[in-house]
């Protein structure tokens, strides 16, 4: 799980072009959207593609994404439980 969280932070920084950030700048339980990291709806689309590309998870219910993308922790938990690769 720890490795997955670190891997996710690196992927988020790379995929979302968070140029001035290091993995250490993102806390595991920090909110990714809104007041936390400040991601927006285009970033959400990028994260949906990231889940499918890297972990073989296809999100069918858009309402799910609100809970899944709450933080690095919630993403990692969802990936652990649903990954196909």
């Amino acid at each position: 799980m720890k490795n997955l969280q670190a891997e996710l932070k690196e992927s988020i920084i790379e995929q979302l072009n968070l140029e001035d950030m290091e993995p250490g700048d993102i806390k595991n339980d920090e909110a990714l959207f809104g007041d936390g990291l400040g991601l927006d709806s285009i970033d959400a689309l990028e994260l949906i593609v990231l889940l499918e590309k890297d972990y073989g998870i296809k999100l069918t219910d858009p309402a799910q994404s609100r809970e899944i993308f709450k933080s690095v922790n919630s993403m990692a938990e969802f990936i652990e439980a649903n990954r196909t690769k």
């Binding site: 285009i42 990028e46 593609v49």
Partner: peptide, 13 residues
């Protein structure tokens, strides 16, 4: 690269 699958949206938009 992605064989026309899973294309990320930002550059398209």
């Amino acid at each position: 690269d992605q064989d026309e699958q899973l294309v990320t949206p930002t550059s398209f938009i």
